[in-house]
Design a binder for these strands. Structure first.
Lengths: 122, 122
DNA sequence: CGGTTCGTACGATACCCATCGTAGTACGCC
DNA sequence: GGCGTACTACGATGGGTATCGTACGAACCG
């Protein structure tokens, strides 16, 4: 893996809940928004970190920031600044430890639903 | 199974979404409320139907009605009138068909979280 | 340094929703 | 018929939240 070109994280830091403080209700709520579910599916489909801007969501930048914050504060993703970009990654291990199988079943369900609705249900 | 003493359903009917119209976002939203998650856990713990009143939720009757309606309209439970009571049951088969493993992982996650938080996290 | 890119902060807005109380309906039973 | 139980309908209320635009900050590049 080519990690040598990845810029180091910068001074700015972001609050993340400790694993033991992640609550199932908050995770479910975070995933219950179509926009955020789409983000999570995209993150799961690509290994490693993705910047906020690669998703091209059909909402304003402010709204995008809002959704990523909800995902981070609920414990679904980690975020870190690298240069001007903010990189996002799923907290797969933490979620699997706390709620075994949950993330996978949500991702599978989302995938099946997209197929069932003919991709129009976005 | 003793079904002979169960009163038949009465004339009043209730709207339920067809299986194919159940949406993952709606299910996740329904489950993201602590009160409703508690209801679902209780329903899962007891086989068959349960009336609305056996749960003794710490909210008013109107609010209880509201939560059961959200669960029904999102496709998580079925409801049917039997005499004066309204009986509730999980739509296990439909959910399993649409979103395999989802309900089980949520239930398991809720159970583990309750244990982790020492039952105080209700 | 100046410009560009990426993301944030803040206020506004409109909508959603969890909660309640009160009044009412449906059903079973006496 | 009259009563009690179980649940509903409706309106109100307060808090949450998805959305936007605008103005700002932080880092990189030339």
């Amino acid at each position: 893996m080519r990690t040598q070109t990845r810029p180091p994280s910068t001074g700015r830091s972001l609050e993340h809940p400790d694993r033991d403080l992640i609550r199932l209700e908050d995770v479910l709520h975070a995933l219950s928004d179509p926009m955020r579910l789409q983000i999570v599916c995209a993150l799961a489909g690509s290994e490693g970190e993705q910047s906020c801007s690669v998703f091209a969501l059909p909402v304003s930048k402010s709204t995008t920031t809002h959704h990523f914050r909800v995902l981070r504060e609920s414990g679904v993703i980690t975020q870190i600044y690298r240069g001007t970009a903010k990189m996002n990654a799923l907290r797969r291990d933490d979620l699997e430890e706390l709620f075994p199988g949950l993330l996978d079943s949500v991702l599978t369900g989302a995938h099946r639903q997209a197929a069932r609705l003919g991709e129009e249900g976005r």
